[in-house]
């Protein structure tokens, strides 16, 4: 079977990549584009480690075929911020000592970033539900909540 050409936008840049019909978006990002930030924790939508944004919305990239992203805009953790130019959430995660093993962190951050875009002033409950699709086995979520709450608060502070 011939490979297909996937055209989409990845982390702000137009991308043209050869993918297999059965490649998931996660496969294509990791294996064909070298973007290994999104992780595969389950491959079946149950853990959130593979979360990326598709047109600004968080999705489980292990459940989307790469070709279903044709013409769409994809953002991965690599596009959220870089070392030295961290996204405020990334910065807060570091300062609060959130990451332990780190495997869930790219997915949690993408879920949290999407949440704050949609709902800049979430309640604790809204944050808890907003990142509930991302399982973390190490942290117990408490420091995540603190980091996200602080970021939302800081954003609010800047606006007012």
């Amino acid at each position: 079977m011939a490979k297909l050409v996937l055209n989409c936008t990845v982390n702000g840049e137009p991308a043209e990549v050869l993918v297999q019909p059965w490649d998931t978006l996660l496969d294509a990002l990791r294996e064909r584009m070298g973007l290994t930030g999104p992780k595969e924790g389950c491959g079946t939508g149950d853990c959130g480690a593979c979360t990326v944004h598709l047109d600004g919305k968080p999705i489980a990239s292990c459940l989307l075929l790469a070709m279903q992203a044709r013409g769409h805009v994809v953002l991965t953790i690599e596009g959220l911020g870089r070392p030295g130019a961290l996204h405020p959430l990334q910065d807060a995660f570091v300062r609060h000592g959130v990451p332990q093993c780190g495997f869930c962190i790219p997915g949690v951050l993408m879920a949290a970033a999407a949440l704050l875009t949609e709902n800049p002033h979430p309640t604790e409950e809204e944050i808890r539900y907003g990142i509930a699709g991302s399982l973390c086995r190490c942290t117990g979520y408490t420091k995540m909540l603190a980091a996200i709450t602080e970021t939302a608060g800081a954003a609010a502070g800047r606006r007012s």
Partner: peptide, 9 residues
Amino acid sequence: VGSVQVRNL
């Protein structure tokens, strides 16, 4: 349904 990552799909 599921989580927000699932509901968007």
